[in-house]
Amino acid sequence: MSTNDPDHGGDGVALQEGDLPARFENPGIPEHQHRMADTDPKAAKRAERQVAFLFVLSMVGTLVMIVGYFAVKMDHDLGFIDYLNRLELSNKLLGIGMAISLLGIGVGAVHWAKTLMPDEERIDYRHLQRGSDEVRAEAVDMLATGVEESGFARRPLIRNTLIGAMALFPLPGLILFRDTGPLPGKYLATTFWKAGDRLMLDPEGGPIKASDMVLGSVAHVLPEGIEEAEHPLNEKAKAAVLLIRLEEDLLAPESLPGAHGGIVAYSKICTHMGCPVALYEQRTHHLLCPCHQSTFDLTQNCKVIFGPAKRALPQLAITVDDEGYLVAAAPFSEPTGPSYWERS
């Protein structure tokens, strides 16, 4: 079998076998096949009734929806479970009623078009998108006249100053966006933590004693007073910390100065994109970020051992205050959270 017949293609005349053309020719539109409804009045009547039935069904759907709206009341006196059951019923009645109402019309209209409206193919003819040569010539003429009349080509002073003005005028539009926010400054490099801040349980509040942390336990903590900050959520987004107690001898030497016994505190904000790295596996001592699976090894000072993050989670040095509560020994020594350009 020839797969690359050089004689094929093109619209040229046949090159072989005398009178055979090079290509097959389009046989033209096949003869129209009549539908049942075109030839059989009974079938047509049946189709008519089907369409009408679908339209009636739509009316029923609309009624279901209206009745559902008024009959199912969302009464606040209901108990929680009953209230939600009622809501589910309301949602189903309204939604299914609406669906029947819409599908009845839609399916009915399409069925009508398919079975009862004429289905003989019609032909439209296409024309090239481009204008005819005369029209094109005229258009070019008109444009040339316009350019000539405006003097755009003849008066370069006007032309060039206009180009300059047009190039400059969007600038104020850009500048207007300057006040959409303050400049970052040192914001990203600092957190709410100060030396001496107690570690407060999130979300319950309340300080933690070192003795409260049993081996293998985890507590999610925030700096004392963060709820009174001007923007508590913004501060939390940088200051959330995970407090973990493990066997002290498992800790890397670099972690020890900031640790208290076997208790260590690390930023919970992923150094990749800022999700809370809150999944602690107490047997493997791995911390996992649920967003992109960056994995940090607590026994290696929270170094990244898997996933798209690069930097270790920053450690918050902790100690205890004179009442025995865990406090920050110092603020974070490096920015918490995702990487950014100015971060060294």
Binding site: A195, G196, K209, A210, S211, V214, H260, G261, T319, V320, D321, D322, E323, G324, V327, A329, A330
Partner: peptide
């Protein structure tokens, strides 16, 4: 101040441990 806090911290930790550990 830092040195003081660290010293204080160590002291308190020791005392805290001794006092509280058995309670669990």
């Amino acid at each position: 101040a830092t040195a003081l806090i660290v010293l204080l911290g160590l002291l308190v930790t020791g005392v805290g441990y001794a006092a509280v550990m058995p309670s669990t």
